[in-house]
Write a protein that binds this DNA or RNA. Structure first.
Length: 970
RNA sequence: GCCGGAGUGGCGGAAUGGCAGACGCGGCGGAUUCAAAAUCCGCUUCUGGAAACAGAGUGGGGGUUCAAGUCCCCCCUCCGGCACCA
């Protein structure tokens, strides 16, 4: 590549920027400059350390990139470029999160197939990203909708389907094992044959799961065997209450339902039980919680995950149920409580409206049951969305007519049902202790239920308030006088001794609902036989391809009907065709018609990037190990962890070295990915227990908008400034009312969305990159201010003028300036350390200062300077690099980062402030290495200081060598 | 309500307990120009002062320290997340 035929203009402007940028982008593409070979491939250098830097891949929408995308992407690009110059093998890939609801909705609106709209959006995103000059290895690009990608998404699903969680394995932390090993243990009698006692789908069933030995494995019929095995699988089918919208023909996420109506269209939404695929993520709750400690993640994100998991310690207690005649029935109602110490104050019980006991009571009413009231309440509660429940917290409920015995007081207490008790948490039933719980207090006062204090409140405590704090137990028999903590210990021991309760840990985290009724997602590799039993598709029959539907309009229906049901030829097939080994080949089978949710594809894409073209495995073991394991953090095992044998003391640690993306994914995506990764780790498929070692969230790029006195928002084009730039006075044009400028999210309605293409057209990509990095700290949310961009463009103009003459030749001097040299070494040191700590705004400020103070440089100095700016502004960097004569030596991307001389970083003489009583009164110039005595003497000898302390007595002189002198004199 | 994070000039922001406001934008003044754009130079926290300089100053109030934007306590505001989780 030569640049002789097109001499650029003398000035660096948008046109020149465009010419330089497009030229080098083409050149990078042609020469595959950023292609990073894997171990064993030609050009791979095993002597270099590795660095895996990942951006959260985008969801390509029809609207194209917005200015928020390039923020994190520019940051990671700078780091990757810097790391390459520091001699790292850098894995820096990009791809597309392309299945999911928005694409499908867009397709329905436009009438164009989602495959087409999505591919178009991807092409547009790729074009836009390339225009920024990001150094992605595009040879690794893929989309989650690619068949040879979702092939492995389905394969991972099967891994979870064919796995169970053994709580005793893995040194007591629990570990996933192959389902065959469970069957083997049942068969040999090593393990009691019974339903999984931790199976979420059976909680609330009172005393059902525990203590139900199923007997000899070999004596069981196949249905029972299936039921037992399925209760252990990490992927299982379960009846779940969902927000069903008949008009849209799909279940909706909670955030898509507003006031009981769908967000889109405003159609009514009902809560309906639906059979759905679930993941037993709750089995991993403790490990997901504990392992946060080892991660280099923002504390806020770790906290959010910890709270999402919501571990709470307490006890499960059985309350004996009374039958129709008021006698002990032998059954009991099980509750979870964190305050077993308050059991003597449990004056009534509350169960969720969905609790089995409610259903049972409606069928077999007790003498005091008001059947109609109960029925209508349950009906009403069932149709209430979660959002309605949140909005109106006024307690509601009805008495079921059922009584239980409080095992501590031996008194008969009533069982109520109320929607403030949630079926999904604990056992779906509580013992209500109004005196020590705010919610129970509200309920008890509303329905006139008895309140007995069992913790002594402080003396001045109001009578009309519950007391939830610590204090001595009262009215509690053998617990009286004990503190809350002591009472808990004692009552749990008592409960266990009498076999009516046990210590128990509960989690806020629920099992993960994984089915959608939508079209645009990964099909499940599952079929159903004529008896309704599910079977996995054999691994070598993957992928199960998403059929191409021409009619992807959702069907309006009262009954949930997944869209894939329309693909009748695809749905109805045979065991042989589908690849089910354990059925006779000609057995008619029905394919699973639900699809996976949008999260599926993003759960493991970081693994595929290690080896994206592999058709035998999701990634080769060698590639996965090379990119994911951080040797300096790992204890190298004697034997590699391939076999699935857990080796707690030799495990490799690592994961993606730096993962940059928005904080909005703090919980769901990052938790789901960690879960899948841990399962794959347990099964010996990956080498590290965690997927992402270091995580960083870039801040939100916001914009300006205007606010009326009533706090409503006004779009920016409806406002004018009737003041000056310095003292602005904004008015709404229509009403002539003053409005105030505020910072708001970019949104179409506020007309404050910035399109990156426009900015690049006006200034070029290098300016755009600099601007976004200069706005402020990467993690902070910052308002976009178009006016400020020009400052960064001017910096590039200055850089251009500093290096290029009016006639287009290189501008160099033979005269070596020691001052320039010193400042250049400081620049190298400052920019390098600022990049390491992701402080790009201060690095750019240092470049500003250097350029402002520099007239001309030698060839060697210019060569260094170009390397320093190249990570930030790769196009102008590459242009200058080649003009410096590096034609044949390749890209500046692989030029070594300059090595500064530490000696040039310190001055011989420095100016330090002299304070009197903490106020700066003078400054003195002293040798940098002056000792405290010399500094004190110099300070006291300063004429101004001498004048000011005249007549005062110097009580103390504090000297901080190299920093300052403070004289205490009065 | 609970959990995070943040409040510094007209604006974006800088500052391992050690000169608050680096750097950029905007503004003001000047140079260049027939003129303008662009460019270059100077000034730009507030108050008083021609200046030297003095005083005040990092959301508010207290405290620790020779020294606090930074550490501690209380309060206010804004942003983000969660929210009847027993």
């Amino acid at each position: 590549m030569t640049d002789t035929q097109s001499q650029p203009a003398n000035r660096y402007d948008a046109a020149l920027a465009d010419k330089i940028e497009t030229r080098w982008q083409q050149w990078w593409d042609q020469h595959q400059v950023y292609k990073q070979p894997n171990p064993g491939e030609p050009g791979f250098d095993p002597s270099r350390p590795k660095f895996y830097c990942l951006d959260m891949f985008p969801y390509p929408s029809g609207a194209g990139l917005h200015v928020g995308h390039p923020e994190g992407y520019t940051a990671s690009d700078i780091i990757c470029r810097y790391k390459r110059m520091r001699g790292f093998n850098v894995l820096h890939p990009m791809g597309w999160d392309a299945f999911g609801l928005p694409a499908e909705q867009y397709a329905i609106q436009t009438g164009v197939h989602p495959e087409v709209t999505t591919r178009t959006a991807i092409d547009n995103f790729r074009r836009q990203l390339k225009r920024f000059g990001f150094s992605y290895d595009w040879s690794r690009e893929f989309g989650t909708i690619d068949e040879d990608y979702y092939h492995w998404t389905q394969w991972i699903f099967l891994k979870l389907y064919n796995a169970w969680f053994d709580p005793e394995a893995g040194n007591g932390r629990g570990r996933a094992r192959h389902i065959d090993e469970l069957v083997e243990e049942f068969y040999t009698g090593k393990r009691r044959v019974r339903l999984n006692p931790n199976a979420a789908e059976y909680t609330g069933a009172g005393d059902l799961p525990d203590g139900t030995d199923a007997g000899e494995w070999s004596s069981l019929d196949s249905e029972t065997k299936h039921a037992i095995i399925d209760s252990y699988r990490l992927a299982y089918l379960s009846q779940q209450t969902v927000n069903w919208c008949p008009k849209l023909g799909t279940a909706l996420a909670n955030e898509e339902v507003i006031d009981g109506k769908s967000e889109r269209g405003g159609y009514p939404v009902f809560r309906k039980p639906l059979r759905q695929w679930m993941f037993r993520i709750t089995a991993y709750a403790d490990r997901l919680l504990d392992d946060l400690a080892n991660l280099d993640w923002p504390e806020s994100t770790k906290t959010q995950q910890a709270e999402w998991i919501g571990r709470s310690e307490g006890a499960e207690i059985d309350f004996p149920l009374l039958d129709l005649r008021g006698e002990k029935s032998g059954e009991s109602l099980r509750v979870f409580t964190t305050r077993p110490d308050t059991i003597f104050g449990a004056t009534y019980m509350v169960v969720a409206p969905e609790h089995p006991i409610v259903e049972l009571t409606m069928e077999l009413p007790h003498p005091e049951t008001d059947e109609n009231a109960l029925r209508s309440y349950v009906q009403w509660a069932r149709n209430r969305s979660d959002i309605e429940r949140q909005e109106n917290k006024e307690k509601t409920g009805v008495f079921t007519g059922v009584y239980v015995i409080n095992p501590a007081t031996r008194k008969k207490i009533p069982v109520w049902t109320s929607d403030y008790v949630l079926m999904g948490y604990g056992t779906g039933a509580i013992m209500a202790v109004p005196a020590q719980d705010t919610r129970d207090w509200e309920f008890a006062t509303k329905f006139n239920l008895p309140i007995v204090r069992t913790v002594q409140p402080p003396q001045d405590w109001p009578d009309d308030q519950p007391f939830t704090g610590d204090g001595p137990a009262i009215n509690s028999d053998f617990l009286n006088g004990l503190s809350v903590a002591e009472a808990k210990q004692k009552i749990i021991a008592w409960l266990q001794q009498h076999h009516i309760g046990a210590r128990r840990v509960n989690y806020r985290l629920r099992d993960w609902l994984f089915s959608r009724q939508r079209y645009w997602g990964e099909p499940f590799p599952i079929v159903f036989d004529p008896r309704g039993q599910h079977h996995p598709v054999a691994e070598d029959k993957l992928p199960v391809r998403l059929p191409r539907l021409t009619d992807y309009q959702p069907a309006e229906s009262d009954e949930p009907t997944p869209l894939l049901g329309k693909a009748t030829d695809w749905v109805h097939t045979t065991a042989a065709e589908a690849g089910v080994a354990d059925l006779p080949p000609d057995t008619p089978v029905r394919r699973e018609t639900n699809t996976m949710p949008g999260w599926a594809g993003s759960c493991w894409y970081y693994l595929r990037f290690c080896d994206p073209k592999n058709s035998n495995r999701f990634a080769s073991r060698e590639a996965e190990r090379y990119w994911m394991v951080t040797p300096e953090l790992s204890v190298e095992p004697e034997e590699v962890h391939d076999s699935g044998t857990f080796q707690p003391h030799t495990q490799r640690v690592g994961g993606v070295d730096l993962y940059i993306g928005g904080a909005e994914h703090a919980v769901l995506h990052l938790l789901y990915a960690r879960f899948w990764h841990k399962v794959l780790f347990d099964l010996g498929e990956v080498s590290t227990p965690e997927p992402f070692h270091k995580l960083f969230h870039q801040g939100l790029i916001t914009s300006h908008a205007f606010q009326r006195a009533d706090r409503s928002l006004v779009a920016i084009d409806e406002v004018e400034n009737r003041g000056t730039d310095d003292k602005p006075a904004y008015f709404e044009i229509k009403t002539n009312q003053p409005v105030t400028q505020i910072v708001a999210k970019m949104s179409k309605s506020l007309k404050n969305v910035v399109n990156p293409d426009d900015v690049i057209a006006s200034y070029g990509a290098d300016t755009f990159r600099l601007y976004e990095m200069y706005m402020g700290p990467l993690e902070a949310s910052k308002p976009w201010n178009t006016r400020d961009i020009v400052g960064l463009h001017r910096l590039l103009q200055k850089i251009w003028r500093l290096c290029i003459n009016e006639d287009g030749s290189l501008r160099l001097t033979e005269t070596h300036s020691p001052d320039t040299e010193k400042r250049l070494h400081r620049l190298v040191a400052k920019v390098g350390s600022d990049i390491e700590r992701l402080s790009f705004n201060t690095a750019i400020a240092a470049i500003f200062e250097f350029v402002n103070d520099t007239d001309i440089m030698t060839r060697v100095q210019t060569d260094w300077f170009v390397r320093v700016i190249a990570p930030f502004t790769p196009h102008i960097g590459e242009e200058l690099w080649h003009r410096l004569g590096h034609h044949d030596k390749g890209s500046v991307a692989f030029a070594p980062w300059p090595v500064h001389d530490e000696k040039l970083l310190v001055d011989d003489e420095i100016e330090i402030p002299v304070q009197i009583l903490g106020k700066v009164r003078s400054k003195i110039i002293v040798p940098a290495k002056a000792d405290p005595k010399a500094l004190e003497a110099a300070a006291l000898a300063d004429p101004r200081i001498a004048e000011l302390i005249e007549g005062k007595s110097v009580r103390k002189v504090i000297v901080v060598p190299g920093k300052m002198v403070n004289i205490v004199a009065n």
